[in-house]
């Protein structure tokens, strides 16, 4: 069983909107939070109200607060976004599946190619994120949103074979990919976030992970991503 088995189409649509809003937030980066936060707040509100989850509601209140902040605060949030996800300092939480699941903790690992094959099953390829690996969190979230939209469409068309196809695809993708690392990623963000916005974002990712996880999904053991390479930046050398 998954959350979508008994969900009315409107709730599924809201789910999809939340997934897309999160996808856009990661795709557009810290520099565009002023554009990507508001849609996230809107979709998250709908989900939080539907499930009446207090943690999600609280997290969304924080998002809402910062979605209406000033330019200076947006800049601070941008810097924090880049510290967590981009660099140039070793990013605390690289937003790529293979960093968490491959043995060497690298990008472009076997997971990246496996995700690409998943997309290919639906004749999809990553063109909007030409410079990003296929297992970039934004792309995986967008793909899940796409599958959800196909479920809604096929349900509307009462095409039971297709409904089952997309439900199966959704479950497989969650079980084999996004569901295996999203919570670990969220925990890593939560542990290192220095701005309330990203603690709230982490809460939303955890809630999403819990909500979307099929009952038999086995999460990867929690393990904070630790930078693997010493750049001597923390050395105790001073002048």
């Amino acid at each position: 069983m998954t959350f979508f088995e008994d969900c009315p189409p409107q709730v599924l649509k809201t789910h999809g909107e939340l997934l897309l809003a999160l996808s856009h937030l990661f795709a557009q980066g810290g520099e565009n939070l002023s554009q990507t936060l508001s849609p996230l707040v809107k979709s998250c509100s709908a989900i939080a109200e539907h499930y009446n989850t207090s943690r999600l509601l609280q997290a969304n209140q924080i998002l809402a607060q910062y979605s209406e902040t000033n330019d200076g605060e947006y800049l601070v949030m941008c810097y924090e976004f880049n510290r967590l996800f981009v660099g140039p300092n070793a990013p605390v939480a690289p937003p790529y599946e293979s960093v968490y699941l491959s043995s060497d903790h690298l990008v472009m690992g076997e997971q990246t190619l496996a995700v690409r094959k998943f997309y290919q099953r639906e004749n999809l390829q990553t063109i909007g994120q030409r410079h990003e690996p296929d297992d970039f969190i934004s792309t995986e979230l967008e793909f899940v949103a796409y599958l959800l939209s196909r479920i809604i469409e096929t349900q509307a068309a009462k095409n039971s074979a297709k409904i089952q196809l997309y439900k199966t695809l959704y479950q497989e993708f969650w079980q084999q990919h996004l569901g295996l690392w999203l919570k670990t990623f969220a925990h890593t963000v939560s542990q290192s976030a220095k701005h309330p916005l990203f603690s709230a974002l982490s809460e939303i990712l955890v809630a999403l992970s819990t909500l979307n996880a099929p009952l038999n999904t086995k999460e990867a053991p929690y393990e904070t991503y630790a930078p693997q390479i010493s750049r001597r930046s923390s050395s105790r050398c001073c002048l």
Binding site: N82, R83, V86, G87, N89, A90, V99, V107
Partner: peptide
């Protein structure tokens, strides 16, 4: 994952405040 993938600008030198 620590390799730099984008051009970045630092707000103030040594601040660690970088934007893409």
């Amino acid at each position: 994952p620590q390799r730099i993938r984008y051009p970045m600008r630092q707000q103030v030198r040594y601040s660690g405040f970088w934007e893409r």
